[in-house]
Amino acid sequence: MENIKIVIDGKEVEAIRDQSVLDVARENGIYIPALCYHPEVEASGGSCRVCLVEAHQNGRMRLVTSCNYPAREGLEIKTDTDLVRRIRKGVVELLLSRVPDSDVIRELATRDGIEDTRFFKDEGDNYRYKCIACSLCTLVCEEVVGVSAISMLNRGYEKEPGTPYHKASQACIGCGACAYACPTQAIAMTDEGALRKIWGREFSMVSCSVCGKPYIPEAQVDWIVKTTGKERSFFDKCPDHR
């Protein structure tokens, strides 16, 4: 690990070589909006294009996504120029057209001074709820959980996450990591009593032997036992009562 210095909005800040510019900004309290990036998910980022910034390097300027742009010595970042604001505003307006009901996107839009989109909205048969097709859920499922129950389907405008043939997936362990990671809370997951519903499948939950609260799907316990060799009895109690 090599410590370097970069400049963000005129301020010199410490960074590690190749660290995400967005991470560096966040560490230094500089706000850059971002949706599809998760620091713990290697392959995440670059999809929503909301975190665009100006990168000045080797006498060249280009607009880059800060989430996956590597910090290098001599790099200067500008997060709040006319160009950045103009292009991001355009991106956010497009996202708002896609998911007019997402409060997260609406909030970003308001921040950028957008009251409503000028473009056609995805409504009626094309209603997409809140999904911006950023693919973070599928990356979490693959990289972090390791089951790859869902993937990004179709192409272009029809891109969406889903299970094969939109059927209840046998690979899914009901862990809900996808839903927790989703930046726009677009994945429907309901817990009712000892029953969890997600991706069209029902999972029965293991309840804590102390507090009696259902807290983890049986399928997830099976998966952890199988892949890590942990004792099954470990899951008798919820994290609060272990």
Binding site: S47, R49, V50, L94, A133, S135, N154, Y157, E158
Partner: peptide, 21 residues
């Protein structure tokens, strides 16, 4: 291009259909 966009990034995926309209 609307047909051929892979759909990974928002400007291309959501912008091209609006341009087409």
């Amino acid at each position: 291009l609307v047909e051929e966009s892979c759909g990974k990034c928002a400007p291309c995926r959501d912008g091209l259909p609006r341009m087409l309209r």
